[in-house]
């Protein structure tokens, strides 16, 4: 295409004045951040593979002594249900109904808090039995994965609270909307990771 034609078609300067898509950029950026976080998880999964041999338990407890699939199973259901509740809250967002969003977010928060309480309880029970990360490389790796996930859940709960306040105060301001979408990415990504943790750390772990 010759220069003149190109100019006639498009002009030299933008005429539409479309600013960048703020919501889309923020969610994509946050998703990239989540993917970088997933690399930390990958490294931690790598740690539990490398440090998952019997030798790495250094004669200490391993497998079924440490891990309780049943409580983990309840945690799984709680987290998945919390995700579902947040999905319903987002349905409220789609319809633009503030009360619906707040109600379902409360449910999601409570279910998530239940998950957090259960995992803290499990960890405390382990520590009470003297099963601590200081005991062996195996325990360090396994518990690191679980604790790192639990930390995310804790941060997520704080975020839930902040977002409920923001929805109540600002309504559906673009900033609130993209943060709600980011929270969705964050929260569902934690359940995705939990699926892997549950399967490979808990279920596979008790087989060793």
């Amino acid at each position: 295409m010759s220069g003149q034609e190109a100019i006639r078609e498009q002009g030299l300067w933008d005429r539409k004045d479309v600013h960048h898509d703020k919501i889309g950029t923020h969610t994509l950026g946050f998703w990239l951040y989540m993917l970088s976080d997933s690399m930390v998880y990958a490294a931690l999964f790598g740690a539990s593979v490398v440090l998952g041999h019997r030798m790495n338990a250094a004669g200490g407890p391993m497998g079924a002594t440490v891990l309780h699939p049943l409580s983990a199973y309840w945690e799984t259901l709680l987290l998945l249900a919390s995700g579902l509740a947040y999905g319903l809250a987002l349905q409220g967002l789609k319809r633009g109904r503030k009360a619906l969003v707040l109600a379902w977010m409360t449910v999601a928060f409570l279910l998530g808090a239940g998950f957090a309480a259960l995992s803290v309880h499990t960890l405390l029970a382990l520590i009470a039995r003297g099963i601590t990360p200081e005991r062996s490389g195996y325990l360090s790796a396994d518990l690191a994965l679980i604790v790192y996930h639990a930390l995310h859940i804790g941060l997520g709960l704080v975020w839930f609270l902040v977002m409920m306040v923001q929805v109540a105060v600002f309504g559906f301001h673009p900033n609130v909307v993209y943060r709600l979408l980011n929270l969705k990415l964050f929260w569902f990504f934690q359940s995705f990771v939990w699926v892997l943790v549950f399967s490979f750390t808990y279920l596979r772990g008790v087989l060793i």
Partner: peptide, 8 residues
């Protein structure tokens, strides 16, 4: 004991 030589 992630990177120690001891204790697994």
């Amino acid at each position: 004991h992630f990177f120690t030589a001891s204790f697994g």
